[in-house]
Design a protein around this nucleic acid. Structure first.
Length: 432
RNA sequence: GCGCAGAUGGCAGAGUGGUCAAUUGCAUCAGACUGUAAAUCUGACGCCCUAAGGGCUCCGGGGGUUCAAAUCCCUCUCUGCGCA
């Protein structure tokens, strides 16, 4: 016990801790802007209580305070600078009080770099309007098709009985009722509650509580929802600013508005007038709509504050987002697809479960500098996936995260060298 | 040698007169996955025809009963158990 106390006091008195007393919880400096006429892209440095982030930067998703299948050392070694955990998941398990007692998010998970938490706003969508339907962050269907009401039938088998029209999340004016996906227990998130939980979890950057809307909602609903998200943003901000922790914990407001130019611009205006430390851009998109939405918003958001495009992360999307002025991105794709055998290469994704790779003794990618590619063959990974070995997920996740994180690092360097357009053109030509 | 039980698609294993090209699991072959209900989910999986659909062959081998057999009878082969 003494040891722990000693360690804490030593940490508290470290020279680093005095640096925490800067006025804003974060400090963002743009060091270079893209010079192309219409480009909004920039390279910068975002300083947080747990270190700097060289932007643009890819944020690794560690929903439940772990990047699935990886240790923090592996995550750090492959180049990740910042991670994002989730309020909804951590509230249910292990609970924010336990995280606080354990010393906060960084301490409990053994990650000493910058951290963020999502507010639970995405679960309003994924467990609400999108529940049991074929709708996610990106939807390939046309709105007309999405409106078909037979998607509940396709709900996965192992997730309990399908109950018609059952949704674990229900939106109310002042908050959202959730039914836990773990044990079915009822929970209620208001903006204040979300912020309170995020305060306790203690990430460097937190997000306002928002509603990510489904693209199949009517324009009327989108309007109504957007007003609600704006009200929630105000409440989130007010509550947060009243807490002492807001001196070292930054809060980002989230822009919504679906695919509608009018709503996106309105949202960007409303949210940017609030005293947030930075901004998130949320929503569920059809791919063709995404660049418009990002552009509309970033032309309005104040240039000097960081912008986080929520949940986006395929290579082509990252090029689009960086070019259009986003600084941060998070995405589950690299780690999620890795666990099911799919890995990124410079000429597109490949699926290591395909029979062709069983005798392929080359690495995933010859020119890749990641641990997995330096040491293992496709054949070995193919074997691990077939044998259902845990290491498969780890090695593929290392590669995919390295691939994406370093792709964004390359974009940053290209901005600094004025070669972004060239990089984009060459990469996408080979990748697609 | 005698008695009993059994032989089903790559494997395991349901089915025991028509609704059976044959439940299910595994394996196999593909696909999906973008603020993680996710080490998950979906589809295909006898052969042939582009699909709806249709045709052909099939439940150890052979023969029989029946309008109809994986399913009933006879016989052979093989396997397991028990007794010699």
């Amino acid at each position: 016990m003494n040891n722990i106390l000693n360690q804490r006091s030593v940490f508290a008195k470290s020279p680093f801790s005095y640096m925490l007393s800067f006025v804003s919880a974060i400090d963002f400096k743009i060091i270079k802007k893209m010079k192309e006429p219409k480009a909004l892209g920039r390279a910068g440095v975002l300083k947080t209580a747990h270190g700097k982030i060289q932007t643009p930067a890819f944020v690794a998703v560690g929903t439940k305070a772990t990047i699935k299948s990886l240790t923090p050392e592996q995550v750090k070694d492959l180049g990740v600078e910042v991670i994002l955990a989730n309020t909804y998941h951590l509230h249910l398990q292990p609970g924010e009080d336990r995280i606080a007692c354990a010393g906060g998010l960084n301490k409990i998970m053994g990650w000493n770099g910058p951290t963020m938490t999502d507010s639970g706003g995405f679960q309003v969508f994924s467990l609400g309007a999108a529940f049991g339907k074929n709708i996610t962050k990106i939807t390939k269907n046309h709105a007309e098709e999405i409106l078909l009401e037979d998607f509940t039938e396709t709900t996965r088998k192992n997730r309990g009985p399908i109950v018609e029209n059952f949704k674990p999340a229900k939106v109310k004016e002042d908050g959202v009722y959730f039914r836990s996906h773990i044990d079915g227990s009822a929970h209620y998130f208001s903006p204040e509650k979300s912020i309170e939980i995020q305060n306790k979890i203690g990430a460097d950057i937190i997000f306002a509580f928002d509603e990510c809307t489904s693209p199949n909602e009517s324009i009327h609903y989108q309007r109504e929802s957007l007003d609600r998200t704006h009200r929630w943003a105000k409440k989130s901000l007010k509550y947060h600013r009243a807490q002492p922790i807001s001196k070292k914990q930054a809060i980002f407001g989230i822009v919504q508005g679906g695919r509608h130019e009018e709503l996106r611009k309105k949202s960007a205006e409303v949210i940017s007038k609030m005293d947030f430390d930075g901004f998130g851009i949320g929503g569920s998109f059809q791919k063709v709509d995404m660049s418009n939405a990002v552009r509309w918003v970033n032309e309005i958001l104040p240039e000097e504050k960081p912008r986080h495009l929520l949940g986006i992360g395929e290579p082509e999307d990252l090029f689009m987002a960086v070019e259009n002025g986003c600084d941060l991105f998070d995405c589950v794709a690299p780690t999620r697809i890795a666990r099911t055998g799919q890995v990124y290469t410079s000429s597109g994704k490949i699926n290591l479960n395909n029979s062709a790779f069983q005798e392929d003794l080359s690495p995933i990618e010859k020119t890749c500098g990641c641990y997995t590619c330096k040491k293992y063959t496709r054949a070995y990974l193919a074997h691990l996936f077939r044998a259902d070995e845990i290491l498969a997920a780890t090695l593929a996740s290392i590669h995919n995260l390295y691939f994406i994180v370093n792709l964004v690092k390359k974009m940053r360097r290209a901005i600094l060298n004025n070669t972004f357009s060239k990089l984009k053109k060459e990469f996408l030509k080979k990748y697609n």
